[in-house]
Design a protein around this nucleic acid. Structure first.
Lengths: 341, 341
DNA sequence: AAAAAAATGATTGGCGTTCCTCATTTTTAG
DNA sequence: CTAAAAATGAGGAACGCCAATCATTTTTTT
């Protein structure tokens, strides 16, 4: 049996095609009882809109925007590559993706970029932005204008977006804590934590989770004062080198980016003892660290996956499907030396 | 600028629409120089087929078959649920998925099921089957008849399928080995390995990887003779209980399913000492084990992800896109107590 | 009961391909 | 050079839905 069409729905609902159309695309001006008749008929016939025909007819496809932090960070570069890839793969389905950028950690620049997004010509935007009032206001405005908003990688307040696509960062921190405690053969001593910026919501949440586990399960480990490295490799290298000398930490947890500095410092350290080191994101620097035994474990949020998922959900949202929040969660992967191919 | 259509291609190629169509859908009967003209025009205009229009016109959408092992294993149940979910999500895009099953580990039954697949009415099949000659022959026959074949979760010989979607199982085993060595505070003593069946290609590969790492990096750990549990919980429970008493292993690596038995045996064990335990797949049993501290770490191949990926690739293949083999690889995730939400 | 408003029906053209058929032109073979 | 074969052109119908317009019927208001 072929699939049901609006004709079938009209016939079983005993109304005209025009009325079915009015109901399905809620153009209004339909009596309540007719609406019900149509909905019943939809249920009875098992009608599902043929998205191909719909898109073909409407003419326009999917117009998406990705708004990313500017800059050369390995993570962002990877993200861009993945978006380009995804864009190619979806071109045959009329998906058009526009990549834009705003200054990292700069709400003013972010707001400016958001203002550039024209609700008339974009169906959905995936953004990596700061969770601050001005930005939230702008997001809310866009949503009101009909642009669906996806917060990517770093979440914002729930009211300011339609869905969050990314990992659960508190869980990430807890995993880091657990592995830290267990990979240190004798878990007693100071642990160094380097964040990018504690104003970034993802970093703050990782720290929170990490703290929880250390306090509960590994009382022997003490947290040195958390330092902010602002994802700057040189600064981090210096910082790590000095801490290694002064405090002899048994563990290092690098929450943010700039891990080339971390690896460099560890490589130069001339002590026989090497702290258990955990970092985030699979990049050239962290993979090199893993390979050479300088980093023990990397917690990765596969950007390819996040992008694929984001595009998928954007399509579904543009198709007016209901998207449950859980569908945005992407699992974290753990990478160790052995996972490198 | 709107996207190019075949009309644009025809115009810039200076040929008729009919010729463009003949070339693009290679119906033959076109002079070599016209073919070239068309291809050039495609390149020049940046023409990409509008899959919506194509599907609408052709009438039929995507007809896929999943062939799974029968039985009540938690993994298969989850797989089925994920396929159903994916099927729902894709219905609007005219994807129709048929789920069938064959007796587990039974090539004869598998061949029979494969024979049931009608090349006329199916575009692509994703199968979990044994990698044996009869099955391979049947797969090859199907491929020749125009059915694209995806080997799911467990691979088969490359010639017998179009692409493998699943994790790299040797890497999985290596990861297990590395964590085994590092999570045991003092890595000296015997390690118990339980496989489902060493005839299953995925299990054999995991064992291979595990062995490699233990031999190279953790010489203090010795492998007890590998036992086959045939994914049977009762048998495994008995086996584990007896080994715990007799050999006091410092580690247990459960390669296959039936982990309810493993957890039960560990729970009943009344020794103060508990071996470091690593298992595969996130199921009720393994999650319970993690939560209660009986299992230390689970290596998971997210079935949802495998299914999503499989469907995506099946669509791309049905659309006659070139699909690079690497796109089938799905990463492994590591689950510990802390990852449970 | 008449007038106004609301609801519904009927119909049309178009979206970009696919898959036809039939006519015409060009090339090749004899 | 003619006949046959090959290549090309021209055009139309269909796929299922959308977005209109205009006509007609039903309901509500005065």
């Amino acid at each position: 049996m072929a699939r049901a069409t609006i004709h079938d729905v009209a016939r079983t609902a005993q109304v005209s095609l025009a009325t079915v159309d009015r109901v399905l695309n809620n153009r209004g001006g339909v009596a309540a009882k007719s609406v019900k008749k149509v909905h019943d008929a939809v249920a009875r016939t098992g009608y599902v809109k043929d998205q191909f025909a719909a898109n073909l007819s409407r003419g326009n496809g999917y117009r998406f925007v990705f708004l990313l932090p500017a800059g050369q960070s390995a993570f962002v570069r990877k993200l861009i590559a993945e978006i380009a890839r995804e864009s190619d793969l979806n071109r045959k389905d009329r998906v058009h993706i526009d990549i834009r950028s705003s200054k990292t950690f700069d709400p003013v620049s972010q707001v400016a970029s958001l203002r550039q997004i024209d609700p008339e010509t974009t169906d959905c935007a995936a953004v990596i932005v700061s969770d601050v009032p001005q930005v939230r206001a702008e997001l809310t405005r866009l949503r009101a204008a009909g642009v669906r908003i996806v917060s990517l990688v770093a979440d914002v307040q729930a009211e300011a977006r339609d869905i969050y696509v990314g990992p659960n960062n508190e869980v990430a921190g807890r995993m880091a804590g657990q592995f830290m405690g267990r990979l240190i053969r004798e878990p007693v001593g100071p642990v160094l934590v380097i964040a990018g910026s504690l104003a970034a919501r993802d970093h703050a949440q990782r720290l929170l989770g990490f703290r929880q586990v250390l306090q509960n399960d590994f009382a022997g480990l003490t947290l040195l004062p958390v330092v902010e490295g602002f994802d700057d490799a040189a600064r981090i290298a210096d910082l790590v080198a000095r801490t290694l000398d002064a405090m002899s930490p048994v563990g290092i947890y690098a929450i943010g980016a700039g891990n080339a500095g971390l690896v460099a410092a560890l490589r130069r350290a001339n002590s026989a003892f090497r702290p258990v080191t955990i970092a985030h994101e699979s990049t050239d620097a962290t993979r090199e660290g893993l390979r050479d035994g300088l980093i023990d474990l990397v917690i990765d949020q596969d950007p390819g996956r996040a992008v694929t998922r984001a595009v998928r959900l954007m399509r579904d949202m543009a198709d007016k499907q209901i998207v449950p929040p859980a569908r945005g969660e992407i699992p974290l992967s753990i990478i160790i030396k052995e996972s490198l191919s």
